[in-house]
């Protein structure tokens, strides 16, 4: 499989502070990726560098095998829907769609019109007069109808209600199935999108913490609940992500997979197991102290 994106040792620093440091990953063709992490982790900076909108301080970026900077053959295949996208003062929604048609070779105008209607977009209205949700919907329509081989959505749902978000996920899956492409979804609403994703990149404090298939992640940790003393003996020697206690009852989230035998033995001692969702796992991984985090990623 050919790599659509290949990033090696990517670094971006502002003076002494590093926004992104030493990030390396590859994205394969026609997969849906989740670029996850807390606000300010460096996700948006990475996406800006991938699309040559910001300059890297170090490292190497290849998109479709070439450097993206001022590279027309790369950029015409890329559609980046930014949360902070600016629009010209006088532009109407229709103007945005018209210009998108000129810039994206795979643009499907009929599909764009259908999407705009589905999201209830007033196409004659000025973009500057749109609500936050409607503004997000403009991005969603452009991102889907562009059918760009590399489509990047940065927090595409801001201001969208649950119904509109579900519509976005529906349309994304539907159109992706018919027109496969590489999609990067950057978000912190992890629970909502985790099932859409095939692979996850987790960025934390400018570093790549996880680069893993979603299926592998769902078995990466588990939570065990029971009497405090038994929990402590069960988790000794294991990588504990978090431990909570309430009276005599304790719960611990443990990194790794419990063997069937371990589970049986623990169940006999009255311990209960529960799965850890992707969102919970990421909260555990990114909500911790620096030293602990380094222990996990090593």
């Amino acid at each position: 499989m050919s790599a659509v994106v290949k990033v090696t040792n990517l670094t971006k620093s502002y003076g002494d502070t590093a926004a992104v440091s030493g990030v390396s990953f590859e994205l394969e063709e026609n997969k849906i990726y989740g670029l996850l992490g807390r606000n300010g982790a460096g996700k948006t900076t990475i996406m800006h560098m991938l699309t040559a909108q910001q300059f890297a301080s170090g490292g190497n970026i290849e998109v479709f095998g070439e450097e993206p900077y001022e590279n027309e053959s790369v950029l015409r295949r890329v559609c980046f829907i930014k949360e902070s996208q600016k629009y010209p003062q006088m532009f109407t929604v229709k103007d945005v769609l018209d210009v998108s048609a000129l810039l994206h070779p795979n643009w499907d105008a009929a599909y764009a019109a259908e999407l705009a209607e589905a999201f209830g977009l007033p196409t004659k209205r000025k973009v500057h007069k749109l609500s936050r949700g409607m503004l997000s919907a403009v991005g969603v329509v452009v991102g889907l109808a562009s059918r760009a081989p590399l489509t990047i959505f940065d927090e595409p749902y801001l201001g969208l209600d649950a119904v509109a978000r579900a519509l976005f996920y529906d349309r994304l899956l539907e159109d992706y199935a018919e027109h496969p492409r590489t999609v990067i979804l950057s978000t912190h609403l992890i629970d909502e999108v985790s099932r859409l994703l095939e692979h996850v990149l987790l960025i934390d404090q400018g570093r790549l913490l996880l680069d893993q298939d979603v299926e592998r992640l769902s078995g990466m940790a588990y939570t065990v609940v029971g009497s405090a003393a038994r929990i402590d003996s069960f988790v000794s020697g294991k990588k504990v992500l978090s431990r909570d206690a309430m009276g005599a009852i304790a719960s611990a989230t443990v990194m790794g997979e419990a063997s069937p035998q371990e589970r049986r033995e623990a169940a006999e001692r009255g311990l209960e197991f529960s799965p850890v969702s992707l969102q919970q796992l990421i909260v555990h991984l990114t909500g911790r102290q620096k030293e602990e985090r380094e222990a996990v990623s090593s």
């Binding site: 997969k31 849906i32 996920y169 529906d170 899956l173 539907e174 992706y176 199935a177 018919e178 099932r195 859409l196 994703l197 095939e198 979603v214 299926e215």
Partner: peptide
């Protein structure tokens, strides 16, 4: 797999698996 993906709202690759 695309029909499964759309119905369960999951990634088609997961359905294919």
């Amino acid at each position: 797999t695309n029909q499964f993906a759309a119905f369960y709202q999951i990634n088609p690759a997961t359905a294919a698996k």
